[in-house]
Design a protein around this nucleic acid. Sequence first.
DNA 1: TATTGTTATACTCTATAACTATA
DNA 2: TATAGTTATAGAGTATAACAATA
Lengths: 155, 155
Amino acid sequence: MKQADPVLALDRAFELAGRLAALMEETLAARGLTTTQAQVIFALNERGPLVQRDLSQELGCTPRHVTTLVDALEATGAVSRAPHPTDRRATLVSLTEQGEAAAARMAGERQEAARALFGHTSASDLRGFVTTVDGVLARLEEFVGSRCARDPGRG
Amino acid sequence: MKQADPVLALDRAFELAGRLAALMEETLAARGLTTTQAQVIFALNERGPLVQRDLSQELGCTPRHVTTLVDALEATGAVSRAPHPTDRRATLVSLTEQGEAAAARMAGERQEAARALFGHTSASDLRGFVTTVDGVLARLEEFVGSRCARDPGRG
DNA sequence: TATTGTTATACTCTATAACTATA
DNA sequence: TATAGTTATAGAGTATAACAATA
């Protein structure tokens, strides 16, 4: 019998997490993209051209890693580098037309996936799901915060 | 205003997925464990001693990788290797007392996290969440199946 | 001949450190 | 002196291929 058990809910959340991550990874891999490379395209599509330093903040990775990511995306023609207009140290990374097309396609796939996965869920269940997840995300922040207070030096 | 939008729900699901994965990874790293190494301990705790070949099936990784994982866990004293009683090719991997303690501690942490994250969610919201996720997981299987039919050669 | 586990090797993702050019 | 990006290097996680011992 199915109980209303927090542990059951957490297990389902982890199950969903794993499957979604796998789905995303496979979908992107079919387009020759890493999850992190896709994040670059997403960030540039959201925020416009960015300096590599800003990209590293956006992605939460090292500036050195941004070099690798942009190298790869430039090689496939998804992004281009250009000198920064005023700061000659900096490099401005922009989506190419092809990169914008990739961003648009990814947005479409997101909608397709959303319809496939949540399209048959009733409006009230959908709202309930979002509300519950929002609550869990808020508690997650508290939980991580309290753990960091107990165990300093970790994230 | 918050709509009942499938795309919003999917975005929240991805957000939760990322945070949960990070939480798990950090928690395990603090114990010196990889996610996959923890899976080994979990599998042995659930199913009892296993031959390495069975572990590779359970984890969905190569037999070679199991060697690496068991090497690491054996080095820290969490598991031990023993000859298989009847098949002299095979190696039986078991949890040590220390490994069982680790499994028990991880189970406790799972309950702690479940209470922290879902403990304040009402029983009916909890049931709704589990039901919705179960539905989404079912559609996910269909969705992945249909994609594989369109795009053979990709698991 | 098929299977279990291993040695040897390599690839991907990401990080740290040292260096160059510019600010 | 500080900052943006790079070259050089390293480490973790995982894979494929060839091989030994056993079935």
